[in-house]
Simulated scan of single mutants.
Amino acid sequence: MTRVAVVVNPTKFDDVDAARRTITEVCARHGVDDPLWIETTEDDPGSGQTREALAQGADVVCAFGGDGTVRAVGEVLAGGDVPLGLLPGGTGNLLARALDLPVDDAAEAMDVVLGGREERIDVGVLRADGEDERVFLVMAGMGLDAEMMDRTDDRLKAAVGWVAYAVGGLRAVLEGGFGVHLQLAGGPVVRRRVRAVVVGNSGRLQGGLALMPEARLDDGLLDVAVVAPRGVVGWVRALATLVTAGRGHRSLDRSQAPAVRMRADAPTQTQLDGDPVGAYRELEVRVRPGALRVKVAGTGGV
């Protein structure tokens, strides 16, 4: 490895220069040249910067920011031979957590990038209302989870971290659910009244909770969680299942498939890797097995 690029979201750091010095020092310790440092902008959260890094011959491209930065970088790298490196800079750091990578120490995370190994993981692809396909690396969802993220105050998130999502969730949970027609990989169409439908490569949420405990990043399948509690008893049962990683039931139904299609009765808030992307009626989701190379620590599989 001779050329490292870092795509960084400068809004995530109080002192961007200090963050850059930290990464540069780790590179020097590993005998690697100073990294190519490319900052994101309001208009481009990382895609153009990743293409620039590839054009300049980067052997690895690191996403240094939140989950939106990771997704933008990963979307460009998917299908290619240049691996993604993960440097923590956000509140969720969802993919890093799913891969058991450092989420609180950028220097330690950079050590993994330069001294770890490569693994291939699946990526999800989502088409909403016939628009262009978009990649997600961890989870996509329609309903309560997206509403929760959309209602989370950025200032509160910066102050208290992932707990802010719980506050947004309390606001969203007071609203009713929505009707949806759900179809898994060409199977029968099922009509449900739900609060959320989540599709993911990983089932791990903030706080160590496992929404989809059987999910794996490299199994070539999407895991689907249908959240459909009715009344207080239904919510208690769903939450108990979430906390204990227990077996699914009608209030929290889980399944697996290589592709999923859902059509809501009305436009419903949707999220990709924790970022709300707008209200849509129809989502078509599929998996691209092993499409993304990523730097991980240790030995064994992902």
Rank of each mutant, 00 (worst) to 15 (best):
V138Q: 12
E118V: 10
P102Q: 09
L87F: 10
V123I: 12
A55I: 02
D67M: 00
E118G: 05
A106T: 05
G65H: 00
R134M: 05
K157C: 03
L86G: 06
L94P: 04
L84P: 00
D59N: 08
D59M: 08
D104C: 06
L36E: 10
Q56C: 11
G48N: 05
A166L: 15
Q56W: 11
G48R: 02
P102L: 09
D44A: 06
L137W: 01
A164H: 10
A128R: 03
D34Q: 14
V113D: 09
A107L: 01
G46N: 01
E175V: 11
L36M: 14
L170G: 15
R151M: 13
M149S: 14
P102R: 01
V61F: 00
G80K: 05
R71G: 07
D150C: 09
K157Q: 10
G80M: 07
A159Y: 00
E108N: 10
D105A: 06
G46E: 01
D34L: 10
D59R: 00
V123N: 04
A140L: 08
L36R: 09
T152N: 14
D150H: 14
N93A: 11
T152S: 14
D81R: 08
E75Y: 00
G130V: 05
G141V: 10
D33G: 14
P88K: 04
D44L: 02
R71L: 06
Q49E: 13
T40P: 12
F136A: 10
A55R: 14
G79C: 11
W37G: 09
T69E: 01
A164T: 05
P83S: 08
R117V: 13
L126V: 15
G130M: 07
D111Y: 00
L86Q: 02
D154G: 10
L95N: 08
V61P: 07
S47L: 04
V138T: 13
W37A: 07
G85D: 08
L94Y: 03
P88N: 10
L77G: 02
A58V: 05
R171C: 09
R71M: 09
D132V: 02
R155T: 11
A159C: 07
P102I: 06
R171G: 15
L170S: 13
E131P: 02
D111N: 12
R151H: 13
L101M: 09
E42D: 15
E108Q: 15
K157P: 04
L170W: 14
W37V: 04
D44F: 03
D59G: 15
G68M: 01
G66L: 02
F64G: 01
P45M: 02
T50H: 08
Y165K: 07
G143S: 12
T152R: 14
R127G: 03
T40R: 07
A107I: 03
